[in-house]
Simulated scan of single mutants.
Amino acid sequence: METEHHHHHHHLPLFLCMFVFIYLLARFVVFRNWSPKTRPEASSCLISLAHGTPAVFLAARAIILDPTARRRFASPNTAFQNLVLDYSVAYFLTDLVHYLVFFPSDVLFIGHHLATLFVFLTCRHVVSHGASAVLSLLILAEVTSFCQNAWTLSAARRNDVVFAARLYDFLSPPFYALYSLVRGFAGPYFVYRMAAFYLSGAADAVIPRWVWVSWIVVVLTAISVSILWITNLWIELYRERIGKLVKKIS
């Protein structure tokens, strides 16, 4: 166990360098012609793209390859699961610095990133168990990532680029629907399964109560905020479409 730990310590700095590099590439090359107002957000989107979809595949692979992970949220972390946790920690640290520098007043996102980092880091370094549960949550959180980033980038330019406006209008309903399904149904159901497992005491020997309780609190908070966010977007979309209809009629 100890050798395995030493062996896998070098992933985090490597991943951190990778995300910082992608961020700087976005800022100074990819989005260099964008306005100073939209450039930071777009750069954050690009590292989110680099993290989200690969994280879904990596996490799925890490869970499938773990012979003890099925139906058990107390299994010891495998070396590969720890690598996936490091990959996500590197992304969230990079994005956290981005928010602290450019949007220090965005307390919601900073809080979200800190809470997410707390869950990943306690799973990775404090208890070294439960990665199959935490990585399942990562999949649920990031499965909509590609759609969301494309939507956010098009939203940022919808007022000055015709294609962006078209993409935004085209993507909004399916993205909202997918996001609603994941955060409104799949997420809460999974958290219910997780809570039932931990409350049964099945993990008490390897995951202290304060750890799993805090994980569930963090996830429930994140899901609640997500549901509020998407509800507001649905209302906005509805108003917009009604407004367009009224204009057409009159």
Score class of each variant (00 low, 15 high):
5 H>S: 09
8 H>P: 03
9 H>P: 04
22 I>R: 05
23 Y>T: 09
25 L>E: 07
26 A>D: 04
26 A>N: 05
27 R>F: 13
30 V>M: 06
31 F>W: 09
38 T>H: 12
39 R>A: 06
40 P>Q: 07
45 C>E: 05
46 L>M: 09
47 I>S: 14
51 H>E: 15
54 P>N: 08
57 F>N: 01
59 A>D: 02
63 I>S: 00
64 I>M: 01
65 L>G: 01
66 D>R: 00
70 R>Y: 01
70 R>E: 02
71 R>F: 13
75 S>Q: 01
79 A>I: 03
83 L>E: 04
83 L>N: 02
84 V>A: 00
91 Y>K: 10
93 L>N: 08
95 D>C: 06
96 L>Q: 09
96 L>D: 08
100 L>D: 07
100 L>Y: 08
101 V>P: 06
102 F>T: 15
105 S>D: 13
106 D>Q: 10
108 L>H: 13
119 V>C: 06
124 R>A: 11
125 H>R: 09
125 H>L: 09
129 H>W: 03
129 H>A: 03
130 G>V: 00
131 A>K: 03
136 S>Y: 02
136 S>K: 04
140 L>T: 02
143 V>D: 02
147 C>N: 15
149 N>P: 14
150 A>V: 13
156 A>K: 15
158 R>H: 08
159 N>E: 13
159 N>I: 04
163 F>T: 14
165 A>N: 14
167 L>F: 07
168 Y>Q: 14
169 D>V: 05
173 P>Y: 06
175 F>Q: 05
178 L>R: 06
179 Y>P: 02
184 G>A: 06
188 P>V: 05
189 Y>K: 11
190 F>T: 06
190 F>M: 08
191 V>N: 06
193 R>F: 09
194 M>I: 02
195 A>M: 11
196 A>R: 15
199 L>K: 13
205 A>M: 08
206 V>F: 05
207 I>P: 00
208 P>Y: 03
211 V>F: 01
214 S>L: 07
219 V>N: 09
220 L>M: 11
220 L>R: 13
223 I>E: 04
224 S>G: 12
226 S>D: 12
226 S>E: 12
227 I>A: 08
228 L>E: 11
230 I>K: 00
231 T>K: 06
233 L>C: 06
235 I>N: 07
236 E>N: 13
239 R>L: 11
242 I>H: 10
242 I>W: 07
246 V>F: 12
247 K>R: 15
250 S>Q: 12
